[in-house]
Simulated assay, not measured.
Amino acid sequence: MRLLALTALIIFVADQLSKYVVVFHMRLHERLTIDVLPPLLTFRMAWNEGINFGLFANSSGAMRWVLVALALAVSAGVLWWLRGQTQRPIVWVAGGFLIGGALGNVIDRVLYGAVADFLNMSCCGIHNPFSFNIADIAIFIGAVGLVLFTSDNKTT
């Protein structure tokens, strides 16, 4: 459980620090776009009021709190599911990735009303219109890790 907590803390801090540096210190929220390694990596500001790719975004104050509650419920559910189980360290790390990312996006919703997305990657003539953040990457990696590495028999 300590490994899960440490991983979640590291992901949470990395997410929030990256958002602060890129969005506010580098003023991406004013500039809207910063070419880093075009077209492979561009910082492109997007305030996401919905879930992935802006799904369920409707500018409703109520939806903001529904998504906060959902992220907190998923985080609590992962903790409940893994509690008391003997798992390989990779499972605790995966849980930490998912929870740290979820909490990073929760803080954005509470503070700003939307999630600060800024990473945009395109390649090979394919233009990607969507932006994401470190928390989104961590949630994806954590979910995949839990599916792939969690044992059903509660053994190591």
Score class of each variant (00 low, 15 high):
6 L>F: 12
6 L>I: 13
6 L>G: 05
7 T>W: 02
9 L>R: 05
10 I>H: 01
11 I>E: 10
13 V>Q: 05
14 A>G: 07
15 D>A: 01
18 S>Y: 03
20 Y>T: 06
25 H>S: 12
29 H>K: 09
31 R>N: 06
33 T>K: 14
33 T>W: 09
35 D>C: 02
42 T>H: 12
43 F>M: 11
44 R>M: 14
45 M>W: 15
49 E>D: 10
49 E>Y: 08
51 I>K: 02
59 S>W: 01
59 S>Y: 11
59 S>K: 14
60 S>Y: 08
61 G>Q: 08
61 G>V: 09
64 R>D: 09
65 W>M: 04
66 V>A: 13
66 V>E: 06
67 L>Y: 01
68 V>P: 06
68 V>M: 09
68 V>N: 11
68 V>Q: 01
70 L>H: 02
72 L>W: 06
72 L>Y: 03
74 V>T: 11
77 G>D: 09
78 V>S: 08
79 L>H: 09
80 W>S: 08
81 W>H: 14
82 L>D: 05
82 L>Y: 11
83 R>Q: 11
84 G>H: 10
84 G>L: 07
86 T>S: 00
86 T>C: 06
87 Q>L: 11
88 R>N: 00
88 R>P: 07
88 R>M: 07
90 I>V: 15
90 I>H: 08
90 I>T: 11
92 W>Q: 12
93 V>H: 07
95 G>N: 01
96 G>F: 04
96 G>A: 08
99 I>W: 05
99 I>H: 08
100 G>P: 11
100 G>M: 08
102 A>P: 02
103 L>S: 12
105 N>H: 08
105 N>M: 10
105 N>P: 13
106 V>M: 08
106 V>D: 07
107 I>T: 15
108 D>E: 11
109 R>P: 11
109 R>G: 04
111 L>F: 13
111 L>E: 14
113 G>V: 06
113 G>L: 12
114 A>E: 09
114 A>H: 14
114 A>G: 01
118 F>H: 07
119 L>S: 09
121 M>E: 11
121 M>F: 10
123 C>A: 15
126 I>M: 12
126 I>N: 06
126 I>S: 03
129 P>M: 03
130 F>A: 15
130 F>V: 06
131 S>G: 04
131 S>R: 08
134 I>M: 14
136 D>S: 00
137 I>Y: 01
137 I>E: 00
138 A>K: 03
138 A>Q: 00
141 I>S: 00
141 I>A: 12
143 A>H: 05
144 V>R: 02
147 V>Y: 12
147 V>P: 03
148 L>H: 12
151 S>W: 02
152 D>L: 15
153 N>R: 10
153 N>H: 13
153 N>P: 01
154 K>Y: 13
155 T>D: 14
155 T>V: 14
156 T>R: 13
